[in-house]
Amino acid sequence: MKYPALLFFCLLLFFGCADSTSHSRAVYMLLDTSGTYTAELDKAQSIINYLLGTLSPGDSLAVARIDTGSFSEKDIVHKVNFDGRPSVSNEQKRAFRLAIDKFVKAVKPSSYTDISGGILQAVEWLDETDAGQKTILIYSDMEEELKKGYVRDFPIQLNEIKVVALNVTKLRKDIVDPRTYMARLETWKTKVEGGGGSWKVVNDLDRLERILGE
């Protein structure tokens, strides 16, 4: 009777010392499906594959589309909390990849681009994961086009969330006047940093390690 009690105490001590700080990572990737940007989605697949290869068991990943009204769970293409066991986690990654392949093949262009709504949805999901490192990846040209009546001109709380804009392509008007491109990025930077997040732009997709790096 004495020894099982001792064993129980040791186990309690062992697991009771578990760290309360979360070491897991959560990534929410927004894919712009508006207009001509749909053609860029093939490149997004390689980024998602990179993320699948980089994220560890216990991490979380979600991919959502940006369309007319992105502040909706329906726009989440696929989401997963990777299991702690590597074998199960590998199977989840395979399933994730298949789901994304299916989505890219079947996606239809949307009329509007609600980036802010997507970010709001991402913040909500990331907060639920309770991860230690939260990242929002926005695969878009960052040109927001809202349908009439949609309200998005308010600050978004992005405490300790890293926002990375990927493959921010130059529009025709940007080529004519590059200041519009700079101004667009600056607006988003201000918005993100104003909400307590950090902002980064990665246009060179050969340097994918910079996405999740410090």
Binding site: F14, C17, T21, H23, P57
Partner: peptide, 19 residues
């Protein structure tokens, strides 16, 4: 170390170290 994560899970930590 790797197969142990299959047994005790790879996402829990004790301090700064993986369980």
């Amino acid at each position: 170390a790797l197969p142990m994560s299959e047994m005790v899970g790879g996402s829990s930590y004790i301090g700064n170290f993986k369980t």
